[in-house]
């Protein structure tokens, strides 16, 4: 990357908007994604982003407006309904969560498709652009869209900071919080809402199909480098932001390089590197440690070969 990229980012106004938008989306999804990852809700992101599609089309059908805030509102509503659907199914039937998520993402997506094709044959036909939500098209980002992402994202991060210790407790041991009298159910609703907001804000850039990767990948990468939740959230934000900016830039390099997949591939590469090479947790370090221990064992100094610092591991 280097110079060409930096100067292009500074001088090219389109790239500036696109890069900024994709970066903000990546940073927001990365930071909030940490909580989804830690609560084992990685696939909720996938389901919510697919579920947003009918919301987007319905919002357009009802208002006739293509303005991003309108579509985002529709997406958030549908995403929320989908989340409630999964909760209700898990709670009131024997159908397990993974099946409920699968039904949510495919059925809502199918319904979205029906609405989209219905729209396509109506005379207004102003739907052009709605299907950019499938894979995202960072190039269609306007400066207003970027302001929306940054503004709403800032509010989300502020809320996260205000309720930081409650969020941490919710993810680690929510019941313990309830015993202390902290309204954990309300915190759960807040956190899920923030996640839904982060997802739907990213749809225009990355698309419904791949948005979940932007929620999970930066968080999974960041987790390997640190053992502190605060650092993890910051780092995931930075990594997600970089993947966003980098992806937006790469996709301007050639014709027909879609932004969404590029961003996802960059983020995935970061995950691979992190899992292999991050200090302490990296797989490569495990190998090296193992080899050293073996070498020491062979050289015959039993005292130092005791694996005294092996982690105990939870159940």
């Amino acid at each position: 990357m280097g110079d060409g990229f930096l100067s292009a980012l500074l001088t090219d106004p389109t790239l500036r908007v696109v890069g900024l938008g994709a970066g903000a989306v990546g940073a927001l999804a990365g930071a909030l994604g940490c909580f989804a990852l830690l609560r084992r809700q990685s696939l909720l992101g996938d389901a919510v982003s697919h579920a947003a599609l009918p919301g987007i089309v319905l919002a357009f059908l009802l208002t006739g407006s293509r303005a991003t805030p309108v579509l985002v509102l529709g997406a958030a509503f549908a995403g929320w309904m989908g989340t409630l659907f999964v909760m209700a199914v898990v709670r009131h039937s024997r159908v397990p969560e993974d099946s409920a998520l699968g039904i949510l993402l495919s059925v809502f997506f199918g319904a979205g498709l029906v609405l989209l094709t219905y729209l396509q044959r109506t005379p207004t036909a102003a739907q052009a652009g709605l299907d950019t939500f499938l894979f995202g098209q960072a190039a269609t980002l306007l400066i207003q869209d970027v302001i929306l992402v940054v503004g709403v994202g800032a509010v989300a991060i502020l809320l996260l900071a205000l309720f930081w210790k409650e969020m941490k407790l919710l993810c680690f041991d929510g019941e313990y919080g309830r015993v202390q009298g902290i309204p954990m159910n309300r915190m759960d609703v807040l956190l899920t809402s923030l996640l839904v907001v982060a997802i739907v804000l990213g749809l225009q850039t990355v698309g419904v199909v791949l948005m979940s990767a932007l929620v999970v990948a930066p968080a999974a990468a960041a987790r390997q480098w640190t053992d502190s939740l605060g650092v993890m959230v910051l780092l995931a934000g930075v990594l997600g932001g970089l993947a966003g900016v980098g992806g937006a830039w790469v996709s301007t390099l050639g014709d027909g390089i879609p932004t969404g997949p590029t961003i996802v591939l960059l983020a995935s590469a970061v995950v691979v590197v992190s899992i292999l090479a991050a200090p302490r947790r990296g797989i490569l370090w495990d190998r090296i440690r193992l080899r050293r221990t073996r070498a020491r064992l062979r050289s015959g100094s039993p005292g130092s070969a005791l694996p005294g610092d092996t982690p105990g591991g939870g159940v």
Binding site: L38, E166, K168, F172, D173, G177, G181, D227, S228, G314
Partner: peptide
């Protein structure tokens, strides 16, 4: 066993959770 001990946090941090309420 009710919590995930791979959660990114320190011993002191867990103990401090007792003061949150």
């Amino acid at each position: 066993g009710s919590v995930d001990w791979d959660f990114p946090t320190s011993v002191e941090d867990v103990v401090l959770m007792g003061t949150y309420g």
